[in-house]
Design a protein around this nucleic acid. Sequence first.
DNA 1: TCAATATCGGATCGTTCGATCCGTAAATGG
DNA 2: CCATTTACGGATCGAACGATCCGATATTGA
Lengths: 202, 202
Amino acid sequence: MSPAGRPRIFDMEAVLEAAMLLFWEQGYEATSLAQLRETTGLSSASLYGAFGSKEGLFEKAVEHYIAGPGSVTDVVADEAESPREAIARLLHGSIDMQTDTSHPRGCLVALSGTTRAPGAGEAGARKVVAARRAADRARIRACVVRGVTSGELAEDTDVDGVTSMIHGFLLGISTQVCDGMSARHLHAAADAVLANWDTRGR
Amino acid sequence: MSPAGRPRIFDMEAVLEAAMLLFWEQGYEATSLAQLRETTGLSSASLYGAFGSKEGLFEKAVEHYIAGPGSVTDVVADEAESPREAIARLLHGSIDMQTDTSHPRGCLVALSGTTRAPGAGEAGARKVVAARRAADRARIRACVVRGVTSGELAEDTDVDGVTSMIHGFLLGISTQVCDGMSARHLHAAADAVLANWDTRGR
DNA sequence: TCAATATCGGATCGTTCGATCCGTAAATGG
DNA sequence: CCATTTACGGATCGAACGATCCGATATTGA
């Protein structure tokens, strides 16, 4: 049954999409409520009524991102793929997404990791993206473990080391893309990472 | 000869060190003039008289960083080292520096790359760090080229691809360190990157 | 039909932002 | 010795910040 009171007019999906794009483009702190009001077309009252705070809106926008463009990293959890193929799709897919000119460059999750003011204000905003990064890392690590058990990687492979290499490169893609690095070179770099994978086989 | 007028009282080095640490810890945008005044002990008048603006102070603080902790990446330009050794020192040295608990985590240059508000205000602040990243990349690339000409790397090596792999991993270290990744795993990851280098030899 | 509930636009809150101004102090060069 | 120049502490600027309040509107359940 519908909740009591006046139903909301605005399109939640459209608002989250607009807010996501703005946060993606500018980062959390550099994005003001005035800009969010303009891009969403909503008033402060509507924004605060629906999301509680700027942080609350950011969290929902990040979830929208993770379910949308950010979902490219989900392939790494697909156990139907060989571990190597899963990593390959993760890296090449992320590069394609982040260099797609139909939306801001880079990865919202990776780029939001830098702002770390001590104030309690932004702690929540950091948490959401940090949690996603931890999840990505865990899935990459699981993939590496699969590679060892399947024999793709040597038994004495340093699992956390290889994981950090792959995840580190993945995180570094965002900065490179923002600096104007071409997709072509990044795809070649991803191949270099994968070549490493291959030569660790037995 | 000394310039006319009242000489400045404060210790420029100490002020730049304090400002650098604060920007390093919090990022450019999250750091306020009030905080800078407190940590430097200077008044607004002194700050603006000496640096012109918050951006001006940031630029000087970044230069101070590059000449200090950030100088660990300079080893990659040392042509007395073999290309592989230069890259090894670059990566392991950066990891040691960024995980050193005597100062903020990560790399100021890498972490300041994410904030990209469209306002003209922060453009100058971004420029300084972006220029340093471009310089780092150029020096890594020169190292890779040296590796090809010296025969350490195969002749058909994709120079820009390998460069992007190394630089991408280097940039990703900062985020990983800020997320709490241990130096041990990162060193292992650097070894994995270098193992790639080795297997590309002939 | 009406009390209760919730959203809306828009005005406005107190705070903090980066930056400037002012009166005073300390050095220079003539 | 004095005019000039620069640096200092501290008060203060207008603008923008995130957040709240208010009157009007629209929907529900009784």
